[in-house]
Nucleic acid binder design. Sequence first.
DNA 1: GTGAAAGCGCTAACAC
DNA 2: GTGTTAGCGCTTTCAC
Lengths: 345, 345
Amino acid sequence: MAYDLKTIAKMTGYSVSTVSRVVNGKGRVSQKTRDKILEIVDEYNYVPNQIARSLKSNATNTVGIIVPDIREYFYKVIRSADAIFSKHGYSILLADSNEDPEKEEMYIKLMYEKRVDGLILATVSNEFKALDIFFNNSVPVVFIDNLPEVDGAYEDCVLLDNAKASSMAIDQFVKEGHRRIAIISGTETEMTGHERMDGYLRSMRLHGFEPDERLVKIGRYEEEEGYRCMAELLENRQEAGFTAVYVSSYKMSCGAFKAIKEKELRIPDDVAVIAFDFTDDTGLITPTITSVVQPIERIGRIVAERLIDRMKMAKQAEDEREEDFPQKIILAPGMLLGESSRYVK
Amino acid sequence: MAYDLKTIAKMTGYSVSTVSRVVNGKGRVSQKTRDKILEIVDEYNYVPNQIARSLKSNATNTVGIIVPDIREYFYKVIRSADAIFSKHGYSILLADSNEDPEKEEMYIKLMYEKRVDGLILATVSNEFKALDIFFNNSVPVVFIDNLPEVDGAYEDCVLLDNAKASSMAIDQFVKEGHRRIAIISGTETEMTGHERMDGYLRSMRLHGFEPDERLVKIGRYEEEEGYRCMAELLENRQEAGFTAVYVSSYKMSCGAFKAIKEKELRIPDDVAVIAFDFTDDTGLITPTITSVVQPIERIGRIVAERLIDRMKMAKQAEDEREEDFPQKIILAPGMLLGESSRYVK
DNA sequence: GTGAAAGCGCTAACAC
DNA sequence: GTGTTAGCGCTTTCAC
C-alpha cells in the first residue's frame, strides 16, 4: 500500500504539516528537520497523491483533448501540443469521439467531471450546448480544425485558412497553365467544406473563370467519397473539359488517386492534381504530388500556448483578471510543389 | 462557480447523502424525493466532482499510456485501445516520452502521482527501476512493443513475434526464388532488433544459407539509418551478390527506398525488398510493396483487455484475489504481398 | 520552526 | 427513507 503523509509524519516524528512543507519545499523548515524527513521520504518512496492535491487546490494540471479520429492529422497536433504542455506541467487526457456527436458530448461531460483545467476540442457537432458547463464555470476551451457557427460571435480557436488553401491551389494551377480547374470538396454543412469551396469559387472568379457546376463535386471527407467524386468527374471529362482537379482533403485524395489509376489515366498528363495535406514518406510515388499542407506543428504549438494563457488567466481572482476576448487564430497553409500539378501539352 | 452536493442539498431541502444517493442511483430514495432532487440537479446543471470521488474511492478510472513517439504506429494502437477502454469507462492519460528514458521515468512517476488505475508502457529504457512504485503498490502495468530484459522473469506484455516476422520475410523471398538475402535491422541492444536479427539468421540457416556478414546492416530505427544501411549494402552489391533485402522497420524502409532510388536501381529488378509495417494509402506506389505488418488493431485491443483484467483483479481484496501470473502475449505478424519482393531473371 | 485543525467534495457506515 | 458524520490525503491558516 502506498504511504501517505500521515504515515510518513509518524515515522519521522514530525507533524503532517511539516512533512508537507518539506515535500513541497515551501515554508520555513530547519535544515536538520528537512534532511531527516527527506531521508524517510526517499527510503519509503513516498509519492504525493495528486488527487488529494487537486481536490484541495481545485486544479488538476491536466488538459482534455477531444478529437474525432486520432488517426487523422490530429495525432501530430497532439504530439506538438504535448511538447508544450509537458514543459508547463500539464498532462493530457485524451478522447477519440469517433466522429460521433453523442460520444463527443459524453466526453465533454466526462472531461468536466474529471475537472480538466482546460479543453482542446475538434468538434464534429454544430452546437455548443454540451460545452455550457465549461463556459459557465469559465474553464477555457480552445477549438481546433473546426468552429461551430454561432451567429457572429466566436470562441477561442486555432484554424486553418481554408479559403486560402483553395486559392493557393487554384493559383498554382493557373500559374502552371491550367484554365479549366475542378474541385472535390467536403460537405457544405461542415465549416471547412464551406470555406474550401468558397475559396475555390472566389479564386476562380478572380482569375476570370465563371463557376461551372460540372467542375464541382462534393462529398464527405472519406476515401470512398473521394473515389466517387473523382470517378464522376472523369466520367464527363470530355464534356466538362477540365485539365486539373483540386482535392481538398487527404482521405479524399487517396480515393481520387485510385479512381484515376483505375481509369488508367496519367497524372498530370491526363489530369493534374493538387492534394490536401499530402506528403510522401517514401519518395516512391511518381509523379511527385503537389499539395496544400496544414502547418500541423504550429497548430499544436499555438493551441497549447493559447490554452495555457487562458488557464493562467482563469486562475487569477475574478476582480483582478484582465479583460480577455476570444481569439480567432487563423493560420496560413503551406504548399508542397510536385509534378502532379503540371500542365501537359 | 460549480455547484457542489452541499449547495444542491440546501436547495432541495434534503441532505447531502440523499442527494448523493439520487445522483448515484444507489440506496433507497422515495420516488417523490428523487424527482424533486433530479429537477434541481438538472436545473443547476450539477456535475459530480470525480476528483473527490477518486479520493474517496481510491480509483480514478483512468489509465496511463506512455509511448516513445505517438507518430509511430502507436497512435493506431491507442485508437484501438481507446475503443475498449471507453467502453469500460476508462479515460486515457497520454504521455509521449520522445524516446527519452529520463522523460519516460518522469512520466512514470507522474502517472503514479495522478493515481492511474493501470499503465501501458512502450518503454525506451532497459530497467524497471522507476516502475517500482507501480509494482510495489500493485498497480498493473502492461508493456507493449518492447520488454526490458530481467533475467528470465517477465512482466505482462503484448508483443509482436519479431523473429517470426523475419522468418516470414525470408520464407517469402525464398519462395519467390531468392537465395542471397540481406537484412537491415535495428540495434542489437533493443529487444526487437535482437529478435528480428535472430529470426533472420535462424531462418537463413533453416534454408541452408550460411550467415554472411556482408548481408547484414544494423542501425537505429530511423529513416537516415535505413538510408545509410541500404546505401552501404548497394555499395557492395556485386561482391555481396544479394538479390533481396528485408528492411525490418518502417522508418528504415522509407530511407532504404530513397537510397535505392538515388542509385537509380529498380525494385524488384535490381534489388527486391520486403518492408516492415508498410502500407500504401494511395495506391500510387509502383511497384506495390511486399511488407510484414504488425496486427496493430489487435495489439491495442488485447493490451486494453489485459490491463482491464488486471485492474479488476487489483480491486479485489488481497485474500480473495485469484492467483495471477504475468502473461507474455506474443502476436503473429501478417504479410502484405506485393511486387517488390519478386525474383527477376 | 513546528503543530493542530479546518476543509476541498464526495461516499458510506450508522443512527433514527 | 432520510440525516449525521467520519474520513479519503492533502494544503494552509493560525497559534504557539
